[in-house]
Amino acid sequence: MSPLKISWKSLWSKPLSAALNIMLVAFGTGILTILLLASKQIGDKLENNAKDIDLVVGAKGSPLQLILSSIYYIDFPTGNIPLKEAMELARSPFVKRAVPLALGDNYNGIRIVGTDSNFVSLYHLQTKQGKFWQQDFEATVGSAVAKAEKLKVGDTFNGAHGLTGSSDIHESHHYKVTGILETQGNVTDNLILTNIASVWKMHDEHENDIPRELTSLLIQYRSPMSVAMFPRMVNETTNMQAASPAQESTRLFSLIGVGVDTLQWFAVLIMLISAISVFVNLYNSLKERNYDLAIMRTLGASRTKLFLIVIAEGMMLTLAGTIIGITLGHLALEFIGKNQESSQAQLTGFVLLYDEIYLFFTGLAIGIFAAILPAIQAYRSNISKILAKN
Rank of each mutant, 00 (worst) to 15 (best):
A312I: 09
A148Y: 06
A139G: 05
L359H: 06
Q41D: 10
G154Y: 07
V25F: 06
L163W: 00
R303P: 02
D44T: 11
P224T: 00
R222A: 15
P211T: 10
A139H: 04
H174I: 01
A312Q: 12
I276D: 00
S172A: 15
A139S: 14
A243Q: 03
Q129I: 01
D292L: 12
G314A: 09
F369W: 02
S143H: 05
Y291N: 10
T237K: 13
A275D: 01
N21E: 03
I383C: 09
L306A: 08
S7T: 06
D105P: 00
N49F: 03
L319I: 11
L191Y: 01
K305W: 02
L347D: 06
H161T: 15
K9T: 11
A312K: 01
T164H: 12
L66Y: 03
I383A: 01
Y221C: 08
Y358T: 14
T164K: 12
Y291M: 12
G321Q: 04
L36D: 09
A375V: 04
Q184L: 09
L66Q: 14
E207M: 14
P15Q: 09
K128S: 15
G329P: 08
A19T: 14
S223P: 03
G300N: 11
T115S: 10
N195Y: 03
L218S: 10
V57H: 03
M225V: 10
N239T: 09
T298P: 05
G325V: 07
L103E: 11
A90Y: 04
I336K: 01
K60Q: 13
N186A: 08
T262N: 08
V351C: 04
V187T: 10
L293Q: 03
G325F: 06
R212A: 13
E138F: 06
V56M: 05
Q340W: 02
L218F: 09
I311G: 05
L359I: 14
F94P: 02
A86P: 11
K96A: 14
E207P: 06
I169R: 11
F369P: 08
P245D: 10
I309G: 02
E47D: 14
S302H: 01
S343Y: 07
T178I: 08
G185A: 07
V187L: 11
K150P: 05
L193I: 12
K45W: 06
L272P: 09
H173W: 06
G114Y: 06
W265Q: 13
L37N: 03
S62M: 02
F279L: 11
L286D: 03
I196R: 01
Q126V: 06
A59K: 05
L331P: 07
L20H: 04
F253W: 02
L373T: 11
L36H: 00
L347C: 03
I192Q: 08
T318A: 08
I323Y: 07
